[in-house]
Structures are given as structure tokens and as C-alpha cells.
């Protein structure tokens, strides 16, 4: 390969010449197609949705109401319940999932590990499972006389079956377990691919200095993976704040509103009830504001200045 020839000369040259990117037009050409397409298919509809959020009414009978939709949010008990649930899911889910995914990717990145391919595929599989199958199975596992209750009762951990889907607390737990099950493998992929870009020799040097596995993990792996950790934490933030599939298909938002999320409420307002697309848009922008807020915090925490 040509690249190997190029690589040979790097060592000598890169020390002499500091890398200076060429400024100017060429950089913009690289990003041009993306900018155009995103403006067309995201920002233009977003702008229209923003305009819609100042209107209200059934279906096409819309009237301009100014900021009324936004003030209505604060006195809408269903929205507040959904907001509460969504934030709970977000606060528990994101750290939990990221730590698990990091743990698996480091385990699976071990050169000496046997059956790596099998383990990797197995742990990734939940991410490709169809939502229909996955929700049927979770409902079945956690039904009153389902496998989970049977196992727990046989182990004498509980004496009576837990009514998973009918109890506000346990229903939330089921949703958290379900999301974790489905998305850990997905996040693991990002770490695994990034770990390949970390030079093995750094670890070797650290081991020679007598660094323990824990020290290697915190002193080398985490700092090296920082850009990707930031990426997954922001995408997971978006994913959990827009959480829809799991509550919609597994608990239906119930019992009561115990697992209702903001996205499911948007769906209800647009399609399940007499449609009010104006108010639904306002609720959507409430999500946007939350995501922007949490993302800025994460960018700041990651110190992504340079």
C-alpha cells in the first residue's frame, strides 16, 4: 500500500515541520454538502415547527396564540409528570449505560481474550433486535407469572410475585433494564472502534512502570477516549430525553403516567388525541431546550475548548 511508504517518512518529517492546516476555501468544501442537506431537511422543517409552536387548535384549524403554548406547559400536569419521568430516566440511564459499555469494551479489547467475536456479537445483538420482538419478550419476562418472578421466588428473594407493570416504581425499573439491555452493546461499538486508535505501546510502557489495570484504565483509556465518551454521553442524553420506543411498546406509559415520557406525550398530542400540532411543537422545543442545556454542561465538563 502507498500509505505504508508515506508512513515510513513520517517519523523523520513530522518532527521538523509542525502541522499547520491550510485555511481557506478547501475546508468549507468538505462540509458544504452536509450543511446544505441539513439546512434543507432539518432546519427548514424546524423553523416551520417553531412557527407552529405559536399556534394552537385542532388539526388544520390553527390560530395564533403567541406564547400561550409555552406558558401552558407549566400548568399541564401530564407534561410535568412526563418531564419528571424523563429526567429520572436520563439521570440514571446515561451514567449507568456509559460505564457498562466502557467496561465491556475494555474487556473485549483484550488481545488474549478467547471467543472475542462471539462475545462481541452476543452483546451487540440486542441493538439489532426488532422492537416488536423485544417488547413482546420483555412484557412476557416481566409478567406476573413470568420467568423473572418465578426465578426470584424460587431463590426466595421475594415471597409474592412483583406486579412489574402495574407498580409505578417497578415499571420504571423495567424500562431502565430494557433500555440498558438494548443500548449497552450499541454504545460499546463506539468505544471498541475508538480503542483501536489507541497506541498499544502506551499501555506497554505503563505496565513496565508497574501501573495496575485500574490505573491504566483511568490514566490512559479514559483520557484517550474522551472525545468518544463525550460523543456517547451527548447522544445518550438525546436518546433518553427523546425516549419513546420502550415506554410506548412495553408499558404504554403506565401504570397511570408512571413511565410516560415527553416524546410519548408529543405522540399522544399529535396522533392519539384530537391533534394539536401547535402544542405538540411547543413540547418538542421544551425537549430541545433541555438537551441544549445538558449538552453545554457536558461540553464544558469535557473541557472541549482545544
Amino acid at each position: 500500500m502507498e500509505t505504508t511508504n508515506l508512513n515510513k517518512s513520517i517519523k523523520q518529517k513530522s518532527e521538523k515541520y509542525k502541522f499547520k492546516p491550510k485555511k481557506g476555501l478547501i475546508g468549507w468544501i468538505f462540509i458544504l454538502i452536509s450543511v446544505i442537506l441539513i439546512c434543507l431537511f432539518y432546519f427548514y422543517p424546524m423553523l416551520q415547527a417553531l412557527l407552529l409552536s405559536f399556534q394552537s387548535g385542532a388539526g388544520v384549524n390553527l390560530q395564533f396564540v403567541g406564547l400561550e403554548n409555552y406558558t401552558r406547559l407549566f400548568s399541564d400536569p401530564t407534561f410535568l409528570a412526563a418531564l419528571f419521568n424523563t429526567v429520572i430516566f436520563f439521570l440514571i440511564q446515561v451514567p449507568f449505560m456509559i460505564i457498562l459499555a466502557l467496561m465491556f469494551s475494555v474487556m473485549l479489547n483484550n488481545k488474549k481474550l478467547k471467543f472475542k467475536g462471539l462475545f462481541r456479537t452476543a452483546i451487540f445483538l440486542p441493538a439489532v433486535t426488532s422492537l416488536v420482538a423485544y417488547s413482546v419478550i420483555f412484557k412476557y419476562l416481566f409478567s406476573n407469572n413470568g420467568i423473572i418472578n418465578t426465578i426470584l421466588m424460587n431463590l426466595s428473594i421475594i415471597s409474592e410475585p412483583i406486579l412489574w407493570m402495574s407498580d409505578p416504581f417497578w415499571a420504571k425499573i423495567v424500562i431502565i433494564l430494557a433500555i440498558t439491555w438494548r443500548w449497552v452493546g450499541y454504545n460499546m461499538i463506539f468505544y471498541l472502534s475508538a480503542l483501536q486508535n489507541v497506541d498499544e505501546s502506551i499501555y506497554e510502557a505503563a505496565r513496565m512502570d508497574g501501573a495496575s489495570a485500574f490505573q491504566q484504565f483511568f490514566k490512559i483509556t479514559i483520557p484517550m477516549l474522551k472525545p468518544i465518551i463525550l460523543f456517547t454521553s451527548i447522544t445518550s442524553t438525546i436518546g433518553t430525553l427523546q425516549l419513546f420506543d420502550e415506554p410506548m411498546n412495553i408499558t404504554g406509559g403506565g401504570p397511570g403516567n408512571a413511565t410516560l415520557t415527553i416524546s410519548q406525550y408529543i405522540y399522544d398530542l399529535s396522533f392519539e388525541y384530537t391533534p394539536d400540532f401547535g402544542y405538540a411543537s411547543a413540547v418538542s422545543f421544551a425537549i430541545v431546550v433541555m438537551i441544549v442545556f445538558f449538552s453545554i454542561i457536558q461540553f464544558k465538563l469535557a473541557g472541549d475548548k482545544k
Binding site: S34, V35, I38, F41, Y42, F43, Y44, P45, M46, Q48, A49, L52, T235, I238, Q242, F244, S263, I266, Y267, S270, F277, A280, S281, S284, F285, I287, V288, I291, V292, S295
Partner: peptide, 20 residues
């Protein structure tokens, strides 16, 4: 600014996109 585009739920974009 581009990052903003992934922060809105798709359900909110569907009607304008369909009109387009």
C-alpha cells in the same frame, strides 16, 4: 448549529417535511 438539528424529536419535523 448543526448539532442542534439532532436535538428536536423527529415527530415535530414530520408534517413540514411531508409538505416539502
Amino acid at each position: 448549529i448543526l448539532l442542534l438539528s439532532m436535538m428536536i424529536p423527529f415527530a415535530a419535523l414530520m408534517v413540514p417535511l411531508f409538505r416539502m
